[in-house]
């Protein structure tokens, strides 16, 4: 999701105090948190098998906090005959470690592929937990540059919340610029790199055996989408998702498995309301302030975290369309 800047991490200021205290307490207790698969005070992450061999953990519908360890995205893994693929890396080193532990509870097969669906920290900072497995880290061709531009900024803000549990930046080793595929032995996974939409580095994939689409944050369900790329591009990407013919999908946020058509329809409706609203404002007397106050308000009851993101989304959309 978000996190282009402070929204998702905006509690960092308050949280950072808690983090330091937590770290101190941990020190006094002689615990080394970094060696534990998950913190003792955290319930174990629940990975459900949404279709045979594909496991997904529901991300909390919240912004990153010290407590949730930025485990706010739907992440998971696919177990094939020869190897395991991580569908998205998680939101922090701690989140990635919980994911890795969940894999190891189920199989000893090598973790050969770790996908980072895009640059946002809740999808990219779990990668550090898999470095020891020496997998290929798969990302959109523009992910490398995006991490160079923003990674350090995200890392600092995440470290304010989580200290050393935040993790470090991992640069992808396999770049997808258009389409690509890998084979887990008995299971082909195909990739599609999208033009700028949710961000400028969105990678969608599909489990060909089950037909389930994994579009990551190109699809938000229930939680308000965060616009950090191009609204016009996102609408085009939604059409491309439909064109895959997939019936079901694992969205980046929301329920772990949904019917694709109604989910796309909801997201398209919200984005269209934004687009039409800012266009009308720009064509009129053109005030970004009034657009922020009024555009999209009819959608408030339909999305979680609406008040945390709508104003930012309108700002982004306005910037995009005022130069149209």
């Amino acid at each position: 999701m978000a996190v282009f800047p402070e929204m998702a991490l905006r509690d960092g200021r308050v949280g950072s105090r808690t983090t330091r205290r937590d770290a101190l307490l941990a020190g006094f207790g002689g615990l080394c948190l970094c060696c534990l698969p998950a913190r003792a005070d955290q319930p174990p992450a629940r990975f459900g098998e949404v279709v045979p061999g594909l496991f997904v953990r529901h991300g909390d519908d919240e912004d990153a906090t010290t407590k949730n360890r930025d485990a706010i995205a739907n992440i998971g893994f696919i177990i094939g005959r020869d190897a395991v693929l991580v569908t998205d890396s998680g939101g922090s080193l701690a989140d990635g470690r919980a994911l890795r532990a969940a894999i190891r509870e189920r199989t000893d097969r090598p973790i050969r592929h770790v996908v980072m669906s895009h640059v946002h920290p809740d999808h990219s900072f779990g990668a550090a937990a898999f470095v020891e497995d020496r997998p290929e880290f798969i990302g959109h061709a523009k992910l490398r540059q995006a991490l160079q531009m923003r990674g350090e900024y995200y890392r600092r803000r995440l470290a304010d919340l989580l200290g050393s549990d935040a993790g470090s930046i991992v640069i992808p080793t396999r770049a997808v610029s258009c389409t690509d595929a890998i084979d887990l032995g008995d299971r082909r996974i195909s990739f599609q790199a999208h033009a700028t939409a949710h961000t400028d580095c969105d990678l969608a994939m599909r489990d060909e055996r089950s037909g389930v689409l994994l579009p990551a944050d190109l699809l938000f369900v229930r939680r308000i989408p965060a616009l950090d790329g191009s609204l016009a591009g996102w609408l085009r990407a939604l059409t491309a998702l439909e064109a895959t013919g997939a019936a079901r999908a694992v969205p980046g946020h929301g329920p772990v498995l949904v019917d694709l058509a109604p989910a796309v329809a909801d997201l398209r409706r919200y984005l269209t309301v934004l687009r039409d609203g800012v266009r009308a404002e720009i064509k009129g007397t053109g005030s970004i302030e009034r657009a922020i106050e009024t555009v999209g308000q009819g959608e408030r009851g339909r999305w979680l975290l609406f008040d945390d993101y709508n104003a930012r989304n309108v700002t982004e959309a306005y910037k995009e369309y005022e130069w149209e």
Binding site: F4, P5, E6, M149, R150, Y153, D200, G229, E316
Partner: peptide, 13 residues
């Protein structure tokens, strides 16, 4: 507000 000056831009240089 916070981070407005060091916030990365949403695109490449």
């Amino acid at each position: 507000a916070s981070g407005g000056c060091s916030a990365p831009m949403g695109m490449s240089d």
